[in-house]
Computed example of a mutant assay.
Amino acid sequence: MPQHLPPQTGAATVRSRVRIPLTFPDGYRADAEVFTFHGLADGAEHLALALGEVPEGGTPLVRLHSECLTGDVFGSDRCDCGPQLRESVELISGAGGYLLYLRQEGRGIGLYNKLDAYALQDSGLDTYDANTALGLPEDARDYTAAAQMLGALGVTGVELLSNNPDKAAQLTGLGITVHDRVPTGVHLSASNVHYLRAKVERTGHSIELPRLVG
């Protein structure tokens, strides 16, 4: 059985590591070394995928990717999660670093609540107002476990692959140096325009949508 340290210790250790070859639907392939952990603050089964080789003296490229069953697995066009995951694996494989796959479905509200929020979005609410209409936070994610995972891997500074300023702010507050924030591409579809626009307008995501925002 996994053994979890008390959250207040702030400590985490590597539980196991295993190599997994990855193949994406478009044929892209990458080799990952997947790490599991003991002692994460939230007790969830988060994963770290080591990809590529960090140059000597270099800083790892790191993405905190929140689990999205609908986007990552089923290819939903209502978000940009699946394309971001695919892009991140390739970019990190080239630069060297880690993809942290965090079990934070629906910005931390869970799968069923996320689908309930989708129904509210169909009636005109944006992704944030739909959450609050359900009595839930706009974004319930806490990145303490992500900082613990990086610490267990010996990582104290990162190039952060993210459009989300909150991820950088939380990691910095948790003692991880964010040397730079590298935006992902714009993965636009007819079904996610309003979702992406809300992320730009409501929470300052660095997504270049000049024709759609303003």
Rank of each mutant, 00 (worst) to 15 (best):
H46T: 07
H46C: 08
L47F: 15
L47I: 06
A48T: 04
A48F: 03
A50S: 13
A50T: 04
A50P: 00
L51Y: 01
L51P: 11
L51W: 10
G52S: 12
E53P: 01
V54N: 08
P55K: 13
P55H: 12
P55L: 04
E56C: 02
E56Y: 00
G57L: 03
G58H: 06
G58R: 03
T59Q: 00
T59W: 04
T59I: 15
T59G: 14
T59C: 08
P60W: 07
P60I: 01
L61Y: 02
L61H: 00
L61I: 00
V62W: 12
V62A: 09
V62D: 10
R63D: 03
R63I: 06
R63V: 05
L64K: 07
L64M: 10
H65G: 07
H65F: 08
S66H: 13
S66M: 06
S66G: 15
E67G: 00
E67S: 15
E67N: 07
L69F: 14
L69A: 14
L69I: 15
L69G: 11
L69V: 14
G71H: 01
D72C: 05
V73R: 12
V73G: 07
F74S: 08
F74N: 12
G75H: 09
G75Q: 01
G75C: 07
G75K: 10
S76T: 07
S76V: 10
S76N: 10
S76F: 13
D77R: 11
R78A: 14
R78Y: 14
R78L: 11
R78H: 12
C79W: 07
C79S: 03
